Amino acid sequence: MDREQEQTLAEQEALLAECKLYQGEKEPENKEPLTQTDEDETVTGLPVGPTPTSTDVGVPVPPTPWSTGLFQCFGTGDEHFSSDLEVCVLGAAAPCVLYGSNMERLYPHSRVFADRCLHYSCLLFLGQLLFNANNIAPWSSVGSRIALRRKYNLEGYGQYCFGCSGTPGEESRERCDSICDMFIHGLFCLHPFALAQEGRELRRRTLHPAFQPYLVVTMAPPMEQSMSS
């Protein structure tokens, strides 16, 4: 065996010894033993450091106030003034149209405006025929106010009407607010104000279902044409 072969064999033995060291067959002499804490962290996989604090889940969110008050017929004079003025006029002159518009924004489906407007108009005509007052149609709009208040988590008027108190998540508070909604719509003198308040709230929170954004469509230029012989 010549010198070149001996050098190659020595390099192979050194490489084999290094591989055995990485595979754990030979432990380093200055390695520190694992403590009990290190073994627990290795087994369980718990993060090092303090335990993260838990967050409260299921805590009721406090209700938000209405954008405008019940008797703010002209709104707050902001950028929605023209819309608030339209709602005020519709509530006083054509409550059936305002009710249909509110239901169209609350339940954006086809034919909602026509069906609800016709339904309200029939009850309005019946109340005028029997009692000479609009005292039947307002009862049909109580459910829409309750649905609107629950959808956007709005404050009820139960504490002002009947002095109800309690946390927002209590069923008694919700029942009291629903009774107050019936009381507001049941009084024909407050019914137009309630419809207008609901209309202002819906117009601030939703877009009209018929609203379609304007799309710019670009057309490619026609291809060049040539006459063949």
Rank of each mutant, 00 (worst) to 15 (best):
E4L: 08
Q5H: 07
Q7T: 13
A10I: 07
Q12C: 08
L16D: 09
E18K: 15
C19T: 12
G24S: 00
P28Q: 05
P28C: 07
P28M: 01
E32N: 11
D38M: 05
G45T: 04
P47H: 05
P50W: 03
T53S: 07
T55H: 10
D56I: 09
P65K: 05
W66S: 00
S67H: 14
T68A: 08
G69N: 03
Q72G: 01
G77D: 00
S82R: 10
S83D: 09
V87K: 10
V87W: 03
A93E: 09
A94G: 09
P95H: 05
S101A: 15
L124P: 02
G143S: 15
R145Y: 10
I146F: 07
L148I: 13
R150Y: 07
Y152H: 12
Y152F: 15
L154I: 02
S165K: 10
P168T: 01
E171N: 13
E171G: 13
R175D: 07
D181F: 10
I184P: 02
H185W: 06
L190Q: 04
L195V: 06
A196I: 06
Q197D: 01
R204Q: 00
R204H: 00
T206F: 02
L207V: 02
P209Y: 00
A210C: 05
A210I: 04
A210F: 04
Q212S: 05
P221E: 00
P221G: 00
P222C: 03
S228T: 10
S229Q: 09
